[in-house]
C-alpha cells in the first residue's frame, strides 16, 4: 500500500509538524520506501502469538499512590520559553479561547 500526498499532509498534521508543500513529494517517496520494506512482516505467521510490548519480562511495579511532584515549581518553570502571571508562575501559550 502506498501513501498519497494527502495522507502525507494528514500524518504531518497529526504529528503537529509543519511540512512545506515543496517537501511533500520527497517525504512521500521516503515514507513509502520505508513502508514497502516493512511490508515483509506480512510473511510471518503470527496467529495466536501474544504481542510483546517491552523488552523487560519483569512485571511492572506498583508505586504508592502519593503526590510526588517534588514541590519544585521554579525548577519546572526554569526552562520555559515564555512565562506569564504573577512571579511568572505559568507557562504562556497563545490564546486558545475567545
Amino acid at each position: 500500500m502506498s501513501l498519497d500526498a494527502d495522507t502525507i499532509r494528514r500524518i504531518a498534521m497529526l504529528a503537529r509538524i509543519r511540512v512545506g508543500e515543496d517537501e511533500v513529494a520527497k517525504l512521500q517517496g521516503e515514507l513509502n520506501g520505508i513502508l514497502a520494506w516493512i511490508e515483509q512482516l506480512n510473511e510471518v505467521d503470527t496467529d495466536g502469538v501474544t504481542p510483546l510490548s517491552g523488552a523487560s519480562r519483569l512485571a511492572l511495579r506498583m508505586r504508592e499512590d502519593a503526590v510526588t511532584d517534588g514541590d519544585i515549581r521554579d525548577k519546572v518553570l526554569a526552562n520555559a520559553p515564555e512565562r506569564i502571571g504573577p512571579d511568572g508562575a505559568f507557562f504562556a501559550v497563545p490564546k486558545v479561547v475567545e
Binding site: I11, M13, A15, I17, R18, L31, V93, V96
Partner: peptide, 27 residues
Amino acid sequence: SLDAQYEATRGEGFGEEVRRRIMIGTY
C-alpha cells in the same frame, strides 16, 4: 494559534531523520 505554534516549533526544531521517524510512528 496553539496548533500553529506546535507545528512551527516542531517543523523547525526537528531534523529530517527525526521528522521521518515521527511521521512513520504517527502513521
